[in-house]
Amino acid sequence: MTEMRYEAPTTLDDAVALLADSKGSTTVLAGGTDVLVQIHMDLIEPDLIVDIKNIKELTAIKKEKGGYRFGAAVSGVELMDHEDFCQTWPGVMDGVKLIGSIQVKGRASVGGNVCNASPAADSVPALIAAGATATIVGPKGKREIPVEEIATGPGQTSLKDGELVVSFFLPNSPAGSGGAYQRFTPRTEMDIAVVGVGINLTLGDDGVCSAAKVALGAVAEKVLVVEEAAAALVGTQVDEAALDNLAAAASAACRPIDDKRGTKEYRIKVAGVLARRVALIALERAQGGQK
């Protein structure tokens, strides 16, 4: 039997060194709510587990010039308990609040949610719609990429060997912006999104939508950014006609599979329904001066 090693580095350099030097399979452990399930189900049997929760860059939430930054290992509950963050980013928090039960959110991190690369991850459409970027470190240094460029398919990411997501940055949005995320699940809680929709939009002084971003979860191999759906909103007052166009564009963009959680037809239809509902919440938040 092979030994499963556990390391809990306290600096980024040490973490990167461990990841880069590791022979055999390595798993990064943040909240562990996906990793431990995968170990329990015998889906992975890592030789090395690198626990990143003792590294300060990964666990901080702070306001920076031009936006908010939070560590990739910050738990859902820590974000929920951060009043200013919640007030500033209600759309992102819509998604974070849906990552599992309260117990799960006590551990689960946004970094884990993103890097687990499930197309149904609840925080991802919300982050993408909000224009979030991720800071990644690795043996070759630091780089910054949009969140939508991390997951490439179910369980697959663009991270290279030895790389690690350190934090997420949410750039301040202009006045008159609002964001929202909703998902559809058969149960009210404790479920995986059959469809998830994240939308951020910005209204001009005239009430006309000047910018929008629409991201759909669980309808393709990864979260989709649907430009046609955003275009349906821009230049409108987010009226009925615009919402119809949004719903149609959202449905048209879906390329889902049939699986135990939903059929293709169902996902395509509900993506449109949800897009409309989410846009209305985002609109209300934009009008209320919230972001």
Partner: peptide
């Protein structure tokens, strides 16, 4: 002080 599922925490943690 944080509510967790103890099945999702490693003993070493």
């Amino acid at each position: 002080g944080v509510l967790v599922c103890s099945c999702l925490v490693l003993g070493v943690e």
